[in-house]
Design a protein around this nucleic acid. Structure first.
Lengths: 186, 186
DNA sequence: TTGACCAGTAAACAAGCGTCTACTAACTTC
DNA sequence: GAAGTTAGTAGACGCTTGTTTACTGGTCAA
């Protein structure tokens, strides 16, 4: 052994969790290996399963802790279309995003994570969004808006930030606001 | 060896291609193994790489042959929103879809296929759609509409057909038509 | 009939994966 | 200070992956 190491159970656990969050967000479930997480966390690979059980359970815990939809929905319902449009427009340019969307986009092809992601999307986006929509068919309208958010995340990940055609931010926000109004209107 | 087999180069090649198309559409690139393709095609695994070079090249050929966006765009531009809405609404219910969308949704987490899918989405959807949009910012508006199509495909694959909230088809088509109008309007 | 060609086959290859076990050594407790 | 607990480590396990090799045996021209 090269050097001794501090014994720090909680610290190591957190380093692993942080490393997993970064890697899963950036690369998706399949592309992230246990050895990669261990290296990024500067921890031994066996500790991952000791603390989290399995790769799948680690992924679930990462999503449970960090997979909330960032404070986008906490606005009056009449401001929702514009708020969502701003969020989506910024994500169309910044190339970085919430873990939940990255997980959805990057890990959707993986059967192992399907159920985890599904539950998380429902509890973090679909249901909170539907809950603040007045009028009938709230669940359906929330679904349509979620599809829009998802689709933009998908394309902005497939192409880089610079590669998608987009006019200035105000024009983008304006159009997306109209789209979300069409999605959400009672 | 159990039995003799006909020597049929073109037939075998086509069986492999068909099997690959079915499996890639249903499962995504990563979940489909060479052995699974060979079994589905009832062909020897070594023949896949003999005829197609590699799994990646097979995927590219499948997409090149069958990855066109089904005849959705061949309508007058004023009918485009409704046509797209009908297409998306049916896909929201039928659970089966075009290869290009399945590839995009199910294989997006895979770095190996990224470039193939990106080129195909551009040439099969983004560019043809933009080409028939009058007015400025056609490329951007096509991107927004494509995001909507993509997002619905994503959600309808994540959840089953029965699990997503949706009113009757006419109401779905009506709302999606309004959404696509907002996406595409000059 | 014989020989070249080649579709088809079986088996192995190296690499990578998630997981697990046996062990070391630092800390705590008495 | 001795004994027990446990965080951390190294390495192997069994399995799956895409790919490749060496071979078998139909097919057909000469």
């Amino acid at each position: 052994m090269d050097e001794t190491r501090q014994r720090d159970r909680e610290g190591t656990r957190r380093r692993i969790l942080d490393a997993a969050r970064r890697l899963f967000t950036e690369l998706g479930y399949d592309q992230v290996t246990m050895r990669l997480i261990a290296a990024e966390a500067d921890a031994n690979i066996a500790l991952i399963n000791r603390y989290f059980g399995s790769k799948r359970e680690l992924f679930a815990e990462v999503l449970a802790v960090q997979g909330r939809f960032p404070g986008v929905l906490e606005v009056p319902s009449e401001d929702l279309p514009r708020r969502l449009a701003e969020y989506v427009a910024d994500r169309l340019r910044s190339d970085q995003g919430s873990l939940i969307m990255s997980a959805l986009v990057r890990s959707s092809g993986c059967a192992e994570t399907h159920e985890i992601i599904r539950d998380r999307v429902r509890s973090a986006i679909l249901e909170p969004l539907a809950a603040r929509l007045p009028g009938g068919d709230a669940a359906f309208r929330a679904t349509v808006a979620t599809a829009m958010i998802t689709g933009v995340s998908m394309l902005s990940q497939l192409y880089g930030k610079g590669e998608l055609e987009a006019p200035d931010r105000e024009a983008v926000v304006g159009r997306l606001t109209a789209v979300f109004q069409a999605c959400l209107a009672p």
